[in-house]
Design a protein around this nucleic acid. Structure first.
Length: 561
RNA sequence: CGGGGUGUAGCGCAGUGGCUAGCGCGCUUGGUUCGGGACCAAGAAGUCGCUGGUUCAAAUCCAGCCACCCCGACCA
């Protein structure tokens, strides 16, 4: 491709709303343009890269035995009503009506559609397992799209769905996908971690996320350097250690106007770890008292999962007063008889703690579980944090940020059950499919590569398997015919060798060529300048290592093996 | 959806009641440069987000609407 005839509209300044590196580079470098909020047009180089990423995904999905299909973007509302997601999905689901006033949705994911296909077409255990995938445009009417194509309302996703005869077989399918995902992200030269994740509204039991390491990532991950445990902070657990000590006698203390844990701790000159924080929560099954150690925050996602609840919200002040007979800030478990008391695991073994007395301006001292109040259940309901002890091995947890580029789930029978997707087993008995689902954000993966591979002083580097071109030839002085001819000769030679080079033969300032080259990030930059005219050698920059070498034509061609 | 903010040339911005709406970058033409977004000169480019109102006069004041952005809960 000749740079003079290719559509790469670069710009020197970027719009103010581009906050993260990948968004900035994609606008600056002429990769994408915004069409509406969260909706982008991919320009030629971004499309080229995306297609290469798609093909790498295809290669590994096919190798894992999955079959590519293509389901419609538009699907009838009835399928979504079968599983109840037409209601549950909420406003994020794009809904439209056809000319007959029938309801349709623009697919945000395809469990319903694929389950419908499978239930109508697979009837025997002999045909299992089956794993179907597609690469397609998805629609999610995000409340707040941001960061360019990182979180758009329309985006490209690879979604795969496995169907198995038993839970054990479903796990086998899941493990195959896990391997395929590791192969994919490794080939893309991404630094990433596979972390335990909360399943959330898609449902299912086991789930892992593939997190690309990036400071701009929206997810927080805790990981243990000693044993390798890693989990999304939404899910991560920790071990807690409370010093053993002889029980002291329960006592009351006046704590006028001291409501928050910090205030109480400071006032009583004790560590927040010695205070029991009591949260009155409203759930779909009624009110609950949730106890946390004073240095902990409630993690509603973990709490929902641990307690089998769908909704947990904080009670209002009026509700708190009604239940505890005291104003907000003085709630405590002692004497709280009317609602179930659930304690976070951080409270196990805590002795002689302070807690609200369910009386205005009063706290109890030397509160001890079992002796002074009854705990219905200990559950893991608090956020773990950096510095905590690893749940698996007790090592120290470190925190980092990540971009979620992939997510794999064991789904169980959530969809097959509600949609009556059945097959006949060896005994001629009807059984329900055990499913799994597996997603990769394709555009997001492309953006993640930029987040990781772009640097201010060295520019962009695209790994050769997905680079927009194999190499870029920069002819520095385009008024010099010899230089232009030599550049073009090399360009033709590379093309003849089956390579996909780009040549910048525009008669423009050198600075612009270098700046734009840094935005394009081809694995090799081959410069023909004055040195070339003197020595006949090309200056080659290998972007992966940022090494500069002078090379003969033969050596240049040898780079591509 | 809650809170905050912004809409003026392709991009970044200035212009708070006054006559022809500016500046930098980018773009076009000519010239000089020619290894890190260079310089000189001449140009083209705007329904001042939309609708309505106040006024002799509105980008500027008022109202409504729309779009976009930032902070939260959600997700590939």
């Amino acid at each position: 491709m000749k740079r003079s005839h290719f559509f790469i509209p670069t710009q020197k300044e970027v719009p103010q709303d581009a906050e993260i590196v990948s968004h900035q580079i994609m606008i600056k470098g002429g990769y994408i343009r915004k069409t509406a909020a969260g909706i982008y047009t991919l320009l030629p180089i971004a499309l080229k890269i995306q297609k290469k990423i798609e093909n790498i995904i295809r290669k590994h999905m096919n190798a894992a035995g999955a079959y590519e299909i293509y389901m419609p973007v538009l699907s009838p509302a009835e399928l979504w009503m079968e599983t109840g997601r037409y209601q549950i999905y909420g406003k994020e689901l794009m809904r439209i009506k056809d000319r007959h006033d029938r309801d349709f949705v623009l697919g945000p994911t395809h469990e319903e559609i694929v389950t419908d296909i499978v239930r109508k077409n697979i009837k025997s255990y002999k045909e299992l397992p089956v794993c179907l995938y597609q690469i397609q445009t998805k629609f999610r009417d995000e409340v707040r799209p941001r960061f360019g194509i990182m979180r758009g309302r329309e985006f490209t996703m690879k979604d795969a769905y496995s169907f198995d005869a038993s839970p054990e077989k479903a796990v086998e399918s899941y493990l195959k996908m896990e391997k395929a995902y590791n192969d994919i992200f490794s080939e893309l030269e991404l630094e990433y971690s596979e972390v335990e994740a909360q399943s959330g509204p898609i449902g299912g039991s086991t789930s892992k996320e593939f997190m690309v390491h990036a400071s701009s990532g929206e997810d927080k991950i805790l990981s243990c350097a000693r044993c390798g445990y890693a989990a999304n902070i939404e899910k991560a657990g920790a071990k807690y250690d409370n010093p053993d000590e002889p029980l002291k006698e329960l006592a009351e203390a006046e704590t006028r106007d001291k409501k928050s844990v910090e205030d109480v701790a400071a006032f009583m000159n004790m560590k927040p770890e010695k205070i029991i924080k009591t949260i009155i929560a409203k759930t779909e099954k009624g009110f609950r008292a949730l106890l946390l150690r004073g240095d902990r925050e409630l993690n509603t996602e973990k709490a929902k999962a641990a307690l089998g609840l769908l909704e947990i919200v904080f009670a209002t002040e009026a509700e708190i007063e009604k239940i505890t007979k005291a104003p907000q800030g003085f709630s405590g478990p002692v004497g709280l008889e009317d609602i179930p008391v659930i304690a976070d695991v951080s409270l196990q073994g805590l002795r002689n703690a302070a807690a609200g007395a369910n009386k205005k301006d009063m706290h109890f001292l030397n509160v001890n579980a079992e002796r002074d109040f009854r705990v219905e259940e200990y559950a893991d309901i608090a956020f773990a944090k950096e510095g905590d002890a690893c749940v698996k091995c007790g090592g120290e947890l470190r925190s980092f940020s990540g971009i979620e580029v992939g997510h794999i789930f064991v789904l169980g029978t959530k969809y097959s059950k509600s949609m009556s997707a059945r097959f006949l087993d060896e005994n001629g008995k009807e059984q329900i499919y055990h499913m799994g689902c597996y997603g990769i954000g394709v555009g997001r993966t492309m953006a993640s590569v930029i987040e990781q591979k772009y640097s201010q002083d060295k520019g962009m580097y695209w790994p050769s398997c997905i680079a927009p071109f194999d190499a870029e030839i920069l002819v520095m002085n385009c008024k010099n015919e010899d230089a232009v001819k030599a550049g073009q000769a090399l360009y033709e030679k590379m093309k003849a060798a089956g390579l996909d080079p780009v040549i910048d033969e525009r008669n423009i300032n050198a600075g612009i060529k270098f700046a734009e080259s840094d935005l394009l990030g081809t694995p090799f930059r081959i410069v023909l300048g004055n040195r070339f005219l003197e020595t006949g050698k090309y200056e080659v920059l290998k972007r992966k290592t940022f090494e500069k070498t002078e090379m003969t034509e033969e050596e240049v061609m040898a780079l591509f093996g």
